[in-house]
Design a protein around this nucleic acid. Sequence first.
DNA 1: ACCACCTGTGAGAGCGCTCTCACCTCGGTG
DNA 2: CACCGAGGTGAGAGCGCTCTCACAGGTGGT
Lengths: 339, 339
Amino acid sequence: MSLGAPGRERPTLESVATRAGVSRATASRVVNGSPTVAPHIREAVLRAVADLGYVPNQAARSLVTQRTNSIALVLTESAGRVFSDDPFFPSIVQGASQELDAAGKQLVLMMVNSGASHERVEQYTISGHVDGVMVASMHGVDPLPGTLARMGIPVVVNGRPMGHTSVPYVDADNENGARLAVRHLLDTGRRRIATIAGPQDMTAGIDRLNGYRAELRDSDRRSIIAIGDFTRQSGIAAMRQLLADDPGLDAVFAASDLMADGAMRALRQAGRRVPDDVAVVGFDDNEFARYTEPPLTTVRQPIVDLGRTMARQLLRLAAGETIEPATVLPTELVVRESA
Amino acid sequence: MSLGAPGRERPTLESVATRAGVSRATASRVVNGSPTVAPHIREAVLRAVADLGYVPNQAARSLVTQRTNSIALVLTESAGRVFSDDPFFPSIVQGASQELDAAGKQLVLMMVNSGASHERVEQYTISGHVDGVMVASMHGVDPLPGTLARMGIPVVVNGRPMGHTSVPYVDADNENGARLAVRHLLDTGRRRIATIAGPQDMTAGIDRLNGYRAELRDSDRRSIIAIGDFTRQSGIAAMRQLLADDPGLDAVFAASDLMADGAMRALRQAGRRVPDDVAVVGFDDNEFARYTEPPLTTVRQPIVDLGRTMARQLLRLAAGETIEPATVLPTELVVRESA
DNA sequence: ACCACCTGTGAGAGCGCTCTCACCTCGGTG
DNA sequence: CACCGAGGTGAGAGCGCTCTCACAGGTGGT
């Protein structure tokens, strides 16, 4: 038993060549689509390939070409939060996967939790396992992307990095999205508009808060702020705090749909009606936003597209092209019933 | 510009050996932790490794060892549904990733949509890119796992496959979970218990329906059935149909939390109170089940653990061990307020 | 008729690593 | 004191592929 793999030996290029009556070099040319092969020879080789069920050995190929056709996606976040209720990472994965598939590249997923495993990622990357790395980092100043880039590995990150790295990034227009939300609240006659901001060690949290502040400032209104961490639970807590701080508020902009949902629960428990007493706007436009009660007005950010764009940029970078240091995708307001 | 990678040449084993004043063979021994190396030599080699920043080239290593240290996770489902609101796949990924990380293996994610891309997966797998494959297939009779297994590639699938393959699988105890749900409803005095079943081309859907039926049969009650596809939307539609079919029903067991949530909405719209008029039990125990109104009583299935177990079994299989053809993880009832 | 040239093909040198095997040096044994 | 075995080390043969280079044969110009 043990060895597991029965089946006959895997055919090699050599065996294909022999069967087709050509040299290994020519067989290789056919397999790799070189144009300098006579039609009848190409035919013969292709037939041999089919007969034998030949598939090139990727390791051998990588060894000589120095390329692997795979791309790593590094998800740095406590594993628990990466994949909970929040479809953010899954959507990034989906987008990246689509784009890589189309380019015939494979996606290698790496989840990084502790700082210790950073080294693991570096080792893995250097060991020539991948042609490039996408980093969907969330928190603070993550040294990983910079380190990899300095080693000469193509890197693209998701979300504007904090600090001042020169690593190219892809992000949604968080600030403008927040402005759109607040403007909508202002336009619909709301006067005391609070916000439940995201974590302030992430640019997504910071930028959305900035947008909120900027838009209010432009219309001479005071800001009322509580901080959450994008989760529903934190939205509940933040909303309670806001109500305590300013019972007269008539609108809330939450920096995530999950927090907006939490806020609506807290409001309901406090006897406030949405949107009659308090209007609520979220951020993300997750699938469930259509199903909250009332359905959530929110700022849509194209997460899948973010993943796709990140992959596309990385592929260009890995191909030796020069890419824009920043790609910012537009956000838009989706008006439903909560505001 | 172009070539992208500046930085000096990557050091090879040869350069490490030279610097340490030993042969390549000995350097290799040290790097791979062979015990038959004199301490002072080992020291010298390790120093050279550190000085040079040597990292073994994975392609070269794979070429000779015929192993790659990576494992594929194939997700076969329309991409849209794989990563929407449903944390099923993300949780599987999380579990598998944890286990593989611990074993020093890498996770290669492949999303398969059309039947056409099955061939892509086969090619990729055969090309020696991975040491084994986990298939999280959802629908009907998927030929992929069988095909791979026949090629001598270690395969483990998630969820009992339909048809009669001999591919080992890992699954939750769907039938008993359903029985637990129905028994709870019976125990709490419900008389007319309906179910919103999952898709009947998936064993998860079938087995849960079977459990429902079996438990009702044991207590001589009639079954009232509607079929959904695990999504919230289908839960809404199914609930409406059930209400039309049997307005007197006083309980519903939904085969997914999403459908249970949909059912509760439909019930509310129909003016029924939960749980006073109609009790609702879900299946999954997704994160949001704690946040529905009222909080959802549901059958918990250990999805992350499913992913972990799948990975563990696959690793054993790939290591040449014999593994159980089926591993069934227990489900348990989580009582909240909806029933 | 000769030479320059282009096209298609094959020979062969590695890519960086692992692993078998032979070898060498001891310490212990008969 | 010859012999054996164990422990430690090095030489070298590949793993399967790509790619450079040389070469064979045919074409066209002079």
